[in-house]
Amino acid sequence: MTRVATFWVYLVFGFMYLPIAMILLFSVNDADVMAFPIRGLTSAWYADILSDARLGGGFLTTLFVAFPVAILSTLFGAAAALALVFYPVRWRGLFAAALLLPFLVPRLILAVAQLILFKEVSVDRSLWTVIAGQSIIILPFSTLIIASVLIRLDRRLIEAAADLGASGRSSFRRVVLPLMGNGLLASWVIAFVLSSSEYVLTAFLSGREQPLSVLVASDFRFNLSPSLNALAVLIVFGNIALVVLAEAIRRRSGSKA
């Protein structure tokens, strides 16, 4: 039975990586049609993408959004995780459920709801509304990552600090904070990745300045070319590198505790 299961696991992981392998293949294929057989190697599609000023501008816009989103969702996520794991909080169950809400409400419904809200309070759509909207949908992920680090912390360290006369504030600053540092860093990186690849909410809330994901979506609908493969590969591998980095950081905190 184990052998059948092993085969199945290989198959499923193959399925998960098949689309990524395909775009990687066609991003270096020297042909206008994305189809087999492979004609030869080229780096032309990458050159296309890297010299495209419009996409370059979109990339800068994405960075402009992703940096603050990652900081905000990590800060709020840290506060939420501390309240859930370490300090007693009133109505804990309700608080945890509320944190899940932005994740569970369909993205498009939350996007139109926020659109109406910003209209009602007369805030024009801009990158700032994108930052606010994205921060709230990424909050559940940040909270989860930081909480997963906090759960593995040894509570006796805090008790020891208290026994040695540390006040609540100084035991937080000198014991808890250094130990949760890796969680914060991991959350920041993952939030950055999630922010840069978010599309539906971003499209609804952005004004004239459009981040990369919105530009890619319009190319995708109206202008399908092999250079999109190259762009997709750059995005996928950029993201994978960051996610692996975040996992390594998060795990390091586990082995120390």
Partner: peptide
């Protein structure tokens, strides 16, 4: 409590950007 103070800004953000929009909807 300390936990409540930590949760407060988070709850405020959730209400402002998730609950309020859904209620207006």
């Amino acid at each position: 409590s300390v936990g409540d103070w930590l949760a407060l800004p988070v709850v405020a953000a959730l209400i402002a950007l998730c609950c309020a929009p859904l209620l207006i909807l």
